[in-house]
């Protein structure tokens, strides 16, 4: 999740950092989200090293125990420690979300900008392809892809990337299309900039703010998508800990009173999605040229 494209204008790091501090100070929610994000990163990096128990080791004599001092988040139906599983799952979940979004962002923004800038055939072909994807109810398409290719982590990432692609294309296309005849573009053109240069340095930065909103939403959605797939049995393979599958499994235990199995991974999942979403808003402020001093 790099924000470097936004800083391509000749601004030095110091100024960027001042702006960062300004945004954070003005927007406490973003600050909280940013801290949350750092915390998630810590868990993702050091997760396996800091778990109190082996996240895969079952202990059936100790199954379905409510939270206690020994097991802060309780134990699941096989007696595995829920806390350890929630911590270890962080890495996989972030990996799924970030790689899926990175793929669709990279491909989608480029295709969309090209379509929006050149119009004509480029636009038509790109438009028809995205329409075709859009024409599927997206979750069902993801289900179809995962069902057809098999339920592995990679396929979940690809499926998520594919279903998110059209949004990037559409947003990028719309933004570029609206601006391609704007005064500053015409000026840049007259100054002898090539199309590629124009697109990359003058139009592309402009589509970033709306794209960032999209990225932030999609990071969360990617995790939710994986969770939904788990709920219908197409998620990550057991026994790998993953928040979505833990919530999906735990959800069936709510009525019988074992709320901790769904609640804690659900809370972790919610925090992560929450953090991505809020962070997206923050990022938008951070890179929005209109708010720069």
């Amino acid at each position: 999740m790099s924000v470097t494209p936004a800083t391509t204008r000749e601004s030095d790091a110091g100024e960027w950092f001042r702006h960062f501090r300004y945004v954070m100070a003005e927007n406490p929610v973003t600050l909280i989200a940013f801290c949350l994000f750092l915390m998630l990163l810590v868990f993702a990096v050091f997760g396996p090293a800091i778990t109190p128990y082996d996240p895969l080791a079952s202990e059936t004599g100790n199954a379905l125990q409510p939270p206690s001092w020994a097991h802060w988040f309780g134990t699941d139906n096989l007696g595995r420690d829920v806390l350890s599983r929630v911590i270890v799952a962080t890495r996989l979940d972030l990996l799924i979300a970030v790689s899926a979004v990175a793929i669709s962002f990279a491909i989608g923004s480029v295709l969309g900008s090209l379509a929006g800038y050149y119009g004509g055939w480029t636009d038509r072909v790109v438009g028809r392809c995205t329409d075709t994807i859009m024409a599927f109810p997206l979750f069902v398409l993801a289900m179809g892809i995962v069902a057809a290719l098999g339920n592995t982590v990679e396929n979940i990432v690809y499926a998520t990337a594919i279903i998110n692609l059209p949004f990037y294309v559409r947003v990028a296309r719309a933004e570029v299309n609206v601006r391609r005849h704007a005064g500053f573009v015409a000026a840049a053109k007259l100054a002898g900039n090539s199309d590629a240069r124009l697109l990359m340095f003058h139009l592309y930065p402009n589509i970033l703010p709306p794209m960032m909103v999209q990225v932030s939403l999609n990071l969360g959605w990617a995790i939710l998508n994986a969770a939904g797939l788990s709920f219908i049995g197409l998620g990550v393979r057991p026994p790998t800990p993953e928040w979505g599958i833990m919530v999906a499994e735990g959800a069936t235990y709510i009525v019988s009173g074992e709320w901790w199995m769904a609640l804690f991974p659900g809370a972790a999942l919610m925090l992560a999605v929450f953090c991505f979403n809020l962070l997206g808003d923050g990022l938008r402020d951070l890179i929005d040229p209109q708010r720069r001093t």
Binding site: E26, N27, P28, V29, L217, G220, L224, A227, G228, F231, G244, V247, A248, A251, I254, V255, A262, G266, L269, M270, L271, V273, F274, N277, L278, D281
Partner: peptide, 29 residues
């Protein structure tokens, strides 16, 4: 950036941050 703004953000974001099946089952419960 007023408290209204922040509250709106937090509330709507909370809604989207849970898997729908979880929200649904939780509501049912």
């Amino acid at each position: 950036n007023s408290w209204v703004d922040h509250l709106c953000r937090v509330v709507v974001t909370a809604g989207v941050s849970l898997p729908v099946f979880f929200t649904g089952l939780f509501f049912v419960y």
